[in-house]
Design a protein around this nucleic acid. Structure first.
Lengths: 148, 148
DNA sequence: ATACAAGTTCAAGTTACCTTTAAGTCAATA
DNA sequence: TATTGACTTAAAGGTAACTTGAACTTGTAT
């Protein structure tokens, strides 16, 4: 199967202008053109675009994704640096998950805080509660929020 | 304890210009000024800034954080919408974690892919491997990447 | 009293990532 | 063959979140 930029964009759930922009930025050196200059996307290009999408989700910048694609275009000599980059991004994603888990704990504290405020008609109640009055799992969170 | 903008920025690990920018954008209505116009941060302001930082980590935009702060400044009448917002952000963070977990699976597949390529001197080996030749946990990932 | 680091405002600059617009070309259908 | 919708490029515009620079003021330390 082959696709135009619009068809491929639809398949990926992105705007056609995004694909044109990526191409312009050098992220899509694998995309060929028809005799008339129209971009011709193949199924194997879809896979490249999925990889680009994956790296984007890790928070990698387009210029770094470009380097990765350029390495891939060089062929088998660049297997090791590509592996290294994947491993690095894997660690980065693990760190991001850990940070979001912490953020989640803070939000759960805040949820409890406003639930308690709602029940009592005032934020003063959870705010002035002694540390040992609050549920055990929220004590560390409150200390951290208050910088203690 | 009271702090200048520079001291508070240091305590938070951000640039002083960031705090001035937030103030300018209306995110810090609780910060008072000295007679000479210098910002005076209190310990309770540190806690607000930590909450702002938490909401930022959830991916919330500054204009939406501003709305939250404005509600908080209104007092106890806004407990319910604040609770609703926290719960919404909690769900958003859970979704972000789920997406990163999926991204992690893809990266683990890619790690295996390049490890196998490295062992065999060519990406052709993992690329052309039959689906039932690859480790079970990577089969669904490859199908998704190839759009099958 | 004087120096001087760090504060102030306002405006302009920066970066990343697209999107939009304009002017024109390609290619599938009637 | 003519129409029409989707393609092309180049350049400009947009947005979020800061950062920087210039010109000036505050407040602490000698």
């Amino acid at each position: 199967m082959i696709y135009t930029v619009g068809e491929m964009a639809k398949r990926l759930g992105v705007a056609p202008s995004t694909l044109r922009y990526y191409d312009q930025e050098g992220l899509l050196p694998f995309v060929e053109r028809s005799s008339g200059g129209i971009r011709v996307f193949k199924d194997s290009d879809y896979e490249w675009l999925q990889v680009i999408g994956c790296l984007k989700k890790t928070g990698m910048q387009l210029k770094d994704i470009k380097s990765f694609i350029e390495m891939a275009m060089q062929g088998d000599e660049t297997i090791e640096p590509r592996l290294a980059l994947i491993v690095k991004q894997k660690e980065s994603v693990k760190a991001q998950i850990a940070e979001l888990e912490e953020t989640l704990c803070t939000l759960e504290f805040k949820e409890w805080y406003y639930e308690t405020a709602k029940e009592n008609g005032s934020t003063a109640v959870p705010r002035n509660m002694a540390l040992d009055e609050l549920p055990e799992q929220f004590r560390k969170v409150r200390l951290k929020l208050r910088g203690e």
